[in-house]
Amino acid sequence: MLLFAKSIAGFSFWILGTQAAAAHVKWFSAYDAAGQPRGLENVLCQDFELLLGVALLWIFSGCVVERMSLGELITRSLNRLTASLRLHTEAMIRAICGFFFISLWAVGGILLTPELKTTSTLAGPLQLAIAAGLLSRRTAPLSAAGIVVLFGLAVRDYGMFHLADYPIFLGLAVYLALTGLQKNLFGVQPLDVVRYATAVTLMWASVEKWAYPEWSFPLLNEHPGITFGFTNEFYMRAAGMVEFTLAFALAWTPVVRRVAAAVLLGMFVSACFEFGKLDVIGHSAIIVVLVAILSDHRPNEPDSHAAWLAPVGLCAALTATLFAYYLGHAAIFYTTIL
């Protein structure tokens, strides 16, 4: 009976999404990035296996639907709904990124995200300069260079492991540089670069929900309605699995990634209402990237992505990300894995 209830819970999470998956806990609660994470033997529990099974079913089903007439209908509907956004993708990204960096300057004392505090006198003027450079395509590469400088300052102050949470900023920098120069990256389109960076960002962040679920418990106690009545432990496992699977889907085939972007977009926007203006500012860049992915109307790739490859790819990505996180943490902070 308990297994059935949790299966229904897993299904509900996929239908409704989770606001906690969208809220970045380091912005709202105390954390210790150097602390001992939950051992893998505790992470890879029965609930985790159940949720992974639900995830594999959904990603496989999505790939099957994409090849059916229903997939074509979804594509046509998304194309109609996002036609005007697609025509202004570059300007939209530049505008929202400009808003983001002006907001950072206005708040003051932070580098790229709310927990990356700084006393550097360089940060504020550089954030304003980045925003100014985004007014024109020609100067966007200069803004891209400024983002890389801010990222470098954050690595210097907080370490590479902490900044592994935020490869999306490097992806945005590459996007802005490439669109400004009207080039691609060895055949990879600018939007695809930031799409992959966003996928990696969210996959990495989801592991944190399994490794340090206790960071989020105070937040869940303050907002009990978002847990759907489930325990904090199960909720965080589910939130991590939802986020990881949707993030992986961003790197997959067109219909799958566009639907995943739509679900993630709904989660991030709803979290803004729940957690306020700090969440609006902090997640504005990722929200505009998700809108751009949702609006991307490029046709399907060749049939190199058979439906059965999606579950295999998800398992491979999950295994690689888990071990990269735990091995990296152990190497840097001398913690244990099991």
Rank of each mutant, 00 (worst) to 15 (best):
R67F: 02
R67V: 05
M68E: 12
M68P: 01
M68I: 03
S69N: 12
L70N: 00
L70D: 00
L70I: 10
G71W: 06
E72A: 15
E72I: 05
L73R: 15
I74H: 09
I74E: 09
S77Q: 12
L78W: 09
N79A: 15
R80H: 04
R80N: 01
L81W: 13
T82Q: 05
A83L: 04
A83W: 03
A83E: 05
S84K: 14
S84A: 11
S84P: 00
L85S: 11
L87I: 06
L87G: 06
L87C: 05
L87T: 10
H88G: 05
T89H: 02
T89A: 04
T89W: 01
T89R: 09
A91R: 14
I93H: 01
I93E: 01
I93Q: 01
I93M: 08
I93R: 00
R94F: 08
R94W: 06
R94V: 05
I96W: 04
C97M: 10
C97D: 01
G98M: 02
F101H: 13
I102Q: 15
I102C: 11
S103R: 12
S103N: 07
L104S: 05
L104T: 08
W105R: 11
A106V: 11
V107W: 08
V107I: 15
V107D: 05
I110Q: 15
L111P: 04
L111Y: 10
L111S: 13
L112H: 07
L112C: 11
T113R: 09
E115V: 00
E115P: 06
L116W: 12
K117D: 04
K117S: 11
T118I: 11
T118D: 07
T119M: 11
T119K: 13
T119C: 08
S120R: 13
T121C: 08
L122S: 13
A123Y: 13
A123N: 14
G124Q: 12
G124H: 10
P125K: 03
P125H: 02
L126H: 03
L126G: 03
Q127V: 06
Q127M: 04
L128H: 03
A129I: 01
I130C: 10
I130N: 09
I130W: 09
A132T: 11
G133V: 00
G133Q: 00
L135S: 11
S136A: 07
R137Q: 09
R138T: 12
R138M: 05
R138S: 10
R138E: 15
T139W: 07
T139Q: 08
A140P: 04
A140C: 03
A140K: 05
P141W: 09
L142H: 09
L142E: 09
S143M: 01
S143H: 02
A144W: 00
A145H: 08
G146V: 11
G146I: 09
I147M: 14
I147H: 06
V148D: 07
V148Q: 07
F151V: 09
F151L: 13
F151E: 12
A154F: 10
V155Q: 02
R156Q: 07
R156V: 02
R156M: 02
D157A: 15
Y158T: 04
G159F: 06
M160N: 03
F161T: 10
H162C: 00
H162S: 04
H162L: 06
A164P: 03
D165K: 14
I168M: 12
